[in-house]
């Protein structure tokens, strides 16, 4: 038991690695490329950049699990389901549970992504957040939103931008505690059908600037290999993706310089 109290102390005292209400990304693909995922278009765009939802043409659903630093108390469980709406848009419902009975954060999101011609996609999402701290602290809930765009100004070069909680929703009056805002700006280049390289910058209100790089390589038709690294704090990650029929399984392992390994796994299903 002492182990996680210590970890909490450690995390909060050093770095607001996850302040309350922080935007938690999802999908083991994103984790494998060090979360340099703002330009990706898939189901997990519901977490990473809602503009990416615009690419979804069929019903898609999936689940994601993460065991941060190998501790179940720091687990992340997420789901997402996307429904195509008309020719160029898609609606997504997503949810996340982070933590355990004594401390947890929940997020429910309703997002929509739409493409405007071939070169531009945009998306928005409304989020309901709640934080539970056990014993006498109780529950706090708040509403916030996020939005993003993905553009392809030059063939095979994508630019992505995402903002989370721009209005800085308040959690508590005490010390004017607010949910941090996050901005992400990224670039993805498709070198070929097999190889994509992405670079991204992420800044959260109260923590340092993070630069991330990811490589996504399709080594053979059903198998993808991925790696990435990010700074501040330094992180490296590896992962793979496997397609079988209508399912896609992604797995990743990331390694934090001080706190160690985190396993990530996600499974996605796409209707025929």
């Amino acid at each position: 038991m002492n182990k996680y109290y210590f970890t909490f102390f450690f995390l909060f005292s050093f770095n607001s690695l996850f302040a309350t209400g922080e935007n938690i990304s999802a999908g083991a693909l994103s984790a494998a490329v060090a979360n340099a995922s703002v330009c990706y278009s898939d189901l997990w765009s519901a977490f990473n950049n809602q503009a990416g939802l615009a690419g979804i043409k069929k019903f898609t659903g999936g689940v994601y699990f993460e065991n941060r630093f190998g501790m179940s108390e720091l687990g992340v469980k997420s789901f997402a389901a996307a429904f195509p709406l008309g020719e160029s848009g898609a609606l997504a419902l997503s949810g996340t549970y982070f933590g355990y009975s004594l401390y947890n954060e929940k997020k429910i999101g309703l997002g929509f992504g739409k493409s405007f011609g071939k070169k531009l996609k945009a998306g928005v999402q409304l989020d309901y957040l709640s934080t539970v701290i056990a014993e006498n602290y109780g529950t706090r809930a708040s509403l916030t939103g996020e939005a993003g765009i993905i553009a392809e100004p030059i063939e095979n070069l994508l630019l992505g931008f995402h903002i989370y909680n721009p209005m800085r929703a308040k959690i508590a009056d005490y010390a004017d505690e607010r949910i941090p805002s996050t901005m992400r700006l990224g670039m993805l280049y498709k070198f070929s059908e097999q190889v994509m390289v992405s670079v991204e910058d992420e800044k959260e209100t109260d923590s340092g600037n993070v630069i991330k790089t990811g490589v996504d390589y399709r080594i053979a038709e059903p198998l993808y290999l991925r790696t990435g690294f990010s700074t501040n704090p330094s992180h490296i990650s590896f992962g793979f993706g496997l397609k079988f029929g209508q399912f896609v399984l992604d797995a990743a392992a990331s390694y934090h310089r001080v706190l160690g390994f985190t396993p990530h796994i996600s499974l996605r299903f796409e209707a025929k």
């Binding site: 280049y189 070198f191 390289v197 790089t213 490589v215 790696t227 990435g228 690294f229 330094s234 992180h235 490296i236 390694y255 310089r257």
Partner: peptide
């Protein structure tokens, strides 16, 4: 330690070399 290095030629005439090494 783990070392990851990447060498990219996004366009002709430009080469980007980068590495990241994390060790303990």
């Amino acid at each position: 330690g783990t070392y990851i290095a990447l060498s990219l030629k996004p366009v002709r005439k430009i080469t980007i070399n980068t590495y990241f090494d994390q060790f303990n």
